[in-house]
């Protein structure tokens, strides 16, 4: 008993020390974002600046078209989340709740594509979109999400498998079609899993850098990720403004995470994959 509490205390001490280590970069980011230039470049670190320079935030957001970039990013996010949800649920049902020859082969093929690096398909896809005249629009960033993302399908399939088959059987007895079972029984029961898929799609689109880098050239169409990196190019060295911008872009994700923490962790755990 005594031994147990001792090792418990040691465990807590280790965890607290590690937590501080993991949190220090966040603290440094926020602290820097509230300093003026003189306070930034000091010998020893002032964690709580005095005076606090809140004006860095409006200054940072005014020094690049933040709201435009935010609007662009949100447009892409909404499009991607819609596409992902629409196109993931149907295949997930086909893989989880229907029995047909060739299903498992198709499923393994789909799982294998999760491992496929984007670089292998990226260039011809770029050429396709270019010949369609879609470069310089958001279409190349949104349209592919309507074609069933393997990761999301897998996640939903795992969830569909946990819903008792008896529900479907009862509905079939009553003459319900597979579409009816999918639409009226499975989907309403799968809201948490759909939320997970939506969340990951949102996060992916919010942080995507290479996509907009390749397809978006006009500054008026920049996303936050691209805008931030060009802001870095122009304001290199102004760490207080840079950290203010980085904080602003990070906060929505942290807020989303706190609201949907369970959704998040379960989603990762189910699939065994990083977002």
């Amino acid at each position: 008993m005594k031994h147990k509490t001792l090792s418990g205390i040691a465990g807590h001490i280790a965890l607290i020390a590690l937590s501080l280590l993991f949190l220090a970069p966040f603290a440094f980011m926020v602290s820097t974002s509230l300093k003026d230039e003189k306070q930034v470049f000091t010998e020893t670190i002032q964690w709580i600046p005095s005076p606090i320079h809140w004006e860095n935030y409006p200054a940072a957001l005014l020094s690049f078209p933040f709201w435009t970039y935010l609007k662009n990013t949100l447009m892409i996010c909404v499009g991607t989340v819609t596409g992902t949800l629409v196109s993931a649920a149907l295949p997930a049902y086909g893989f989880a709740r229907l029995r047909w020859r060739g299903r498992d082969a198709m499923f393994y093929l789909m799982i294998a594509t999760i491992m496929l690096p984007a670089q292998v398909t990226q260039l011809p896809i770029f050429l396709i979109f270019r010949s369609l005249g879609w470069t310089g629009t958001f279409l190349p960033l949104i349209v592919p999400s309507f074609f069933g993302n393997a990761f999301s399908i897998f996640l939903l399939r795992q969830f569909f498998l946990t819903i008792p088959e008896e529900l479907s059987d009862a509905a079939r007895m009553d003459g319900c079609s597979e579409w009816g079972i999918f639409w009226r029984i499975l989907l309403p029961l799968s809201k948490p899993a759909l939320a997970t898929v939506a969340l990951f799609a949102f996060m992916g689109a919010w942080t995507d850098f290479q996509g907009p880098l390749i397809y978006v050239h006009d500054e008026a169409q920049y996303t936050l990720a691209i805008g931030l990196s060009s802001f870095l190019g122009r304001h290199g060295g102004q760490w207080n403004l840079l950290m203010a911008a980085a904080t602003v872009v990070t906060i929505p994700l942290i807020v989303a995470f706190f609201f949907a923490q369970r959704t998040f962790i379960q989603g990762i755990a189910v699939t065994g994959m990083k977002g």
């Binding site: 966040f26 850098f209 995470f257």
Partner: peptide
């Protein structure tokens, strides 16, 4: 939660943060 938090920082913001760190 604390240990997981760093992995949701958007990659460009993370890059900026670590340039400074």
């Amino acid at each position: 939660t604390l240990f997981y938090l760093p992995s949701i920082v958007p990659v460009v913001a993370n890059a900026m943060l670590w340039l400074w760190l």
